[in-house]
Design a protein around this nucleic acid. Structure first.
Lengths: 212, 212
DNA sequence: TCCATATGGAACATTCATGTTCCAAAATGG
DNA sequence: CCATTTTGGAACATGAATGTTCCATATGGA
């Protein structure tokens, strides 16, 4: 049969190169395959954040590909989940770096951070929404530079007296996550206008709910 | 064979009364059976809130009963999950009613509410932590009096100028949940002393994170 | 202590999701 | 337009969780 694109470079860790599985690395993907792979990963993140037990058939349907195609790109369910975790972390990290946390006044940086987190909340929900994923995060050996940037920003804010010094950096980071997730969900449900989500989250994060 | 306790009153919806399945209603349970049933429901809530795909064997182990016993009390996995949702809602409702939301100053009632929610956060996480459960909540035909009590308290707080009038009742209720869940998790992980969780949640709920 | 009640491990049947193969058909892109 | 690439539905094998039965054993309570 004809040798498909990239087939000659099947990685050694694929012990039995069944059918024409594309490279796990996108670097060797054709544009068409790259689009298909991205569609699967995005669908996996969305579907699995809603229902951790979603079947491969459901993920395939959400990605608008055949189940066979999912198997072609990811050798098994575990590999798909791992790849989705890694991909989601990349998306989140990129979004946080784009927020330029080490630039400008702490309060403004915080607001940019919240906006970035609201935009990627589904990926964050997928990655951190269930403890079972924590093992996969470790396995993904991810660069935690984004996490450090967030924590540095919080610590700097507390040192400057801008953020509440009576609670821990952990707590502030988790509060950030909790409010952005809640805002993201409210936006998805239509309970908040999508463009207004970040503003509401920023408001509550900064001043709380009780007046005074 | 000997006729077991309550066996004669097998409900009609149990088409083939296999082995000596106890009544689905606890009203007819013996003290021993009631204890066993509660152990299963509590274990189900805890185990399933951590991993929605936990097996019946894992739930049985957590409940310290045999898998056969789980099948004896709940005809199938779906019925167990439904019963766990209904039971969790009962626990949560009771906890919220015990907080006496219609008594005393709004701010104090709010604090009692937060304390109650922190105490039942795992049940709340189980019930509302994944959208797939929403259907079961509807099926459970639950009394939403507790939900109304919470919303009434928030609305009253806004009318009195105690709570932020610029955001919706929905948003405040969801923020309550998000912060109490975050606090509950921090307590469970040892990041906050358990007795201090409610205080930290109350502090952030009331005044936010930004100083000023 | 004794007997009624309750339990559970083993074994087995069933169901369903996953994994695999095939090759005709569809899609892509030059 | 056509060669090449990519896809996917059907069919099948596999494995794991669930559902069911049995009956010896454990437990509860009078």
């Amino acid at each position: 049969m004809n040798v498909p694109y990239g087939y000659l470079n099947v990685p050694e860790e694929c012990p039995d190169a069944r059918y024409d599985r594309p490279m796990t690395s996108t670097s060797a993907d054709s544009p068409t395959r790259s689009r298909t792979r991205r569609a699967i990963l995005a669908a996996a993140a969305t579907t699995l954040s809603r229902n951790r037990a979603a079947t491969l058939a459901e993920i395939a349907e959400a990605a608008q590909v055949g189940r066979t195609t999912v198997h072609r790109y990811f050798p098994d369910r575990d590999e798909l989940v791992k790849a989705t975790v890694a991909d989601s972390i990349d998306v989140i990290n990129q979004s946080i770096f784009d927020a330029k946390l080490d630039e400008g006044p702490t309060r403004e940086a915080m607001r940019r951070l919240i906006t970035a987190m609201v935009d990627t909340y589904e990926r964050m929900m997928f990655v951190w929404g269930e403890q079972g994923m924590l093992e996969l995060i470790d396995e993904a050996d991810t660069d935690d530079a984004a996490d450090r940037a967030v924590r540095d920003l919080i610590a700097r804010g507390q040192t400057e007296g801008v953020l509440d010094p009576e609670v821990s950096v952990d707590w502030i980071q988790q509060t950030l996550w909790a409010l952005t997730y809640t805002g993201g969900e409210a936006g998805a449900k239509g309970q908040l206008p999508r463009h207004g989500v970040a503003a509401v989250v920023i408001r509550t994060f900064e001043r709380g709910i009780v007046v005074g």
